[in-house]
Design a protein around this nucleic acid. Structure first.
Lengths: 381, 381
DNA sequence: AAAGTTTGCTTAAACATTTTAGCATATTTG
DNA sequence: CAAATATGCTAAAATGTTTAAGCAAACTTT
């Protein structure tokens, strides 16, 4: 390695050393990574000058236009790219966003991840992701991992139980946006969908269609967004003094168990002629359960599910859903995060956004007039 | 900011400064990040010693067990974590893997991404992802971005047109695994699925079921894996001297256009009573097309699609697929990559793996005996 | 003409670590 | 008993940037 010895202030014995290297270096030229130092040496200016020009501080630091131009030209010519690691070490900024979701393979989160990536790439940010699988301990590990990696900001859909960790993160001043779920007692930027409103509208829609006995299938979990969905349904029912019919599925169960419970619920409540599902997965299982019971949709049972899904668009009949506005969510998440990233460190201030979901009415919730119903015999009484 | 002034070699005026700070620092203590320097200072050993112990080189570098123990204990006690950026800068390793896929929101890639994450997390690697959207220029940018970020390895499903870039990457010695698609003329580690075999079996299955006229819907793209799928079908047909019926869909078309083309194809070939689809999306569009034509599956038209999908498992009837072994793919990708990451730089050697897909026979490809067929009137002659 | 200001750049510290080379001291060997 | 070797640790270089502070020279003001 060639070492530069200071001789007189600002002058180095560059030329001599350069000659010594130039002969055998030719073949290795491709391998040798070019440094800011090499740029400076070649142009006979200081490293600082090159750095300032490259970081757009030429004007501010009064580097002459002609020199700035020369630097940029040479940098372009040799294709120099600053080492991001060194840069990050010095500046503390990595331009990496940490994305933590329940499961990246879940279509909802995968879609949001795709949209976020698309929107944030142009701003020079990259995304590093991890899935929590709703495991509190794992989530806690993930959050510290992200801290260790010095991510600039966080986009988080977290399970219960990490409130303290997130509160600490917020206090530390790191830009952060919660989405899909808020955390109880944590004041932070958040982008969520108004599940209560969505389910309220869905229930009213079913009642308006003349389905008299509407039930709801939800998860037992205490997650806030789940409770809101249940509450929207309950309110619509109470307004008409109708009895609520709720099936709460315990967490962490197998597919078959869930389907069996839905089947049992339907059989135990024969009067029930419409069902709401609180998540797309419950909806999917519900379809399977009804299919096994031989009940036709919507003749025997009308269906509305929260969250859209490929299957719902293409199933026969197509399934009515309360769709989350994915595009708008991604947009809100990004703009909130960028504001926090680029804006001043306005600690204490946080933005809570509640987006309206959209009821997409499809075939599964439309009442079929008696006369046009097919005369297929009912499989179950 | 407190500055440390060198006094004698290796000794700093620590104590004085420490006293000056200790009074008002209490509240800020949480903010002040602890450094390796602080550990060394407290134990009155050198930074080097602490570093060696932490990196498991205590034995090798003959640090006494008692001291090593002391260091580990104190590090644990104060919860010191080395700064990854500084570490990466020095070692050149980031423990980050770059994942480049066509679209992270596509269930196939999202699932693979989820499996890869799960398997690699325990090894201390993180994943940073980007979607190409099959755009050559964007892909090229992504690859250089990943290089700039010094990812340790690459997992790539790339569009055509970046062969030169990938070849350069391979030559540079960076660990890399291609998956889903190989690249023409690029010798690199690769994990792909034998589409020819899969489609050959699927075609034979349909012929065995008595479907006499089997057609195939594929993409016009010249991608190798697409050609293989087509070829598998063609071979099965040729072996029985049956005419091939192929619909090639041009790339980058809208959903509705594709559906219309499939509809037209079906009408133009009324004798065709079984269809193969080369990707899950084509299969999904095919279902829509058949549904619009009022053709029943499998009575009027049997269906097999490449690639499994939620929809195919739950559609009525359930759809027979040639499923890619996702779990095995992820496993192979990871083990190949880890071998390259951790093993010696055996340049020139590369592993090509071709996994067998699995034909999952469901209802859509089973011939229904004439007598048990429903007597529903055919919508089209 | 001396003092002050502006201009255009440089010096060197800082970021936080890893790792090579080497230095005393203690022990073993010839 | 001198020389060689082993032991246990440390100093300092290296990684590649950014940026605060500062220094001459040129220009402007009094």
């Amino acid at each position: 390695m060639v070492r530069l010895l200071p001789l007189a202030p600002g002058k180095y014995i560059r030329n001599v050393l350069e000659l010594k290297r130039s002969a055998p270096a030719n073949e290795l030229k491709l391998k040798k990574k070019i440094l800011i130092h090499d740029i400076a040496k070649h142009l006979d200016v200081s490293i600082a000058t090159v750095s300032l020009v490259l970081n757009g501080k030429a004007k501010e630091k009064r580097i002459s236009d002609v020199l700035a131009e020369k630097v940029l030209k040479y940098v372009e010519e040799v294709g120099y790219k600053p080492n991001q690691l060194a840069k990050s070490l010095r500046t503390g900024k990595t331009h990496v966003i940490g994305l933590v979701v329940e499961d990246i393979a879940n279509p909802f989160f995968a879609t949001v991840a795709g949209l976020i990536e698309k929107k944030i790439l142009a701003r020079g940010y990259r995304i590093i992701y991890c899935s929590t699988n709703d495991d509190t301990a794992k989530t806690r590990d993930l959050l510290t991992m992200f801290q260790e990696r010095h991510v600039d900001g966080y986009i988080l859909a977290l399970p219960d139980g990490v409130e303290t960790d997130v509160r600490a993160l917020v206090r530390s001043g790191k830009p952060l946006v919660l989405f899909d779920r808020e955390l109880a007692g944590v004041l932070a930027n958040a982008v969520v969908v108004d599940g209560a409103q969505g389910m309220y509208e869905a229930t009213q829609h079913l009642l308006n269609q003349g389905f008299t006995s509407v039930g709801m299938v939800t998860l037992q979990a205490g997650q806030a967004q789940m409770q809101a969905r249940l509450q929207g349904y309950a309110q619509a029912m109470q307004e008409l003094h109708l009895p609520e019919l709720v099936l709460e599925i315990a967490f962490q169960q197998e597919r078959e168990q869930i389907i069996a419970q839905i089947q049992a619920f339907c059989q135990a409540n024969p009067e029930c002629n419409a069902l709401l599902f609180a998540t797309n997965y419950l909806g999917v299982y519900g379809l399977e359960a009804l299919s096994r019971l031989g009940r036709r949709i919507p003749e025997h049972m009308a269906i509305v599910s929260f969250d859209d899904h490929d299957l719902f668009r293409l199933y026969s009949p197509t399934i009515t859903v309360v769709a989350q506005p994915l595009e708008a969510m991604a947009e809100s998440i990004i703009s909130t995060l960028l504001k926090a990233l680029e804006g001043p460190v306005e600690t204490g201030r946080s933005t809570q956004l509640q987006l309206a979901p959209q009821l997409i009415v499809r075939e599964s919730s439309i009442r079929v007039p008696e006369k046009t119903r097919p005369k297929t015999s009912r499989t179950k009484a």
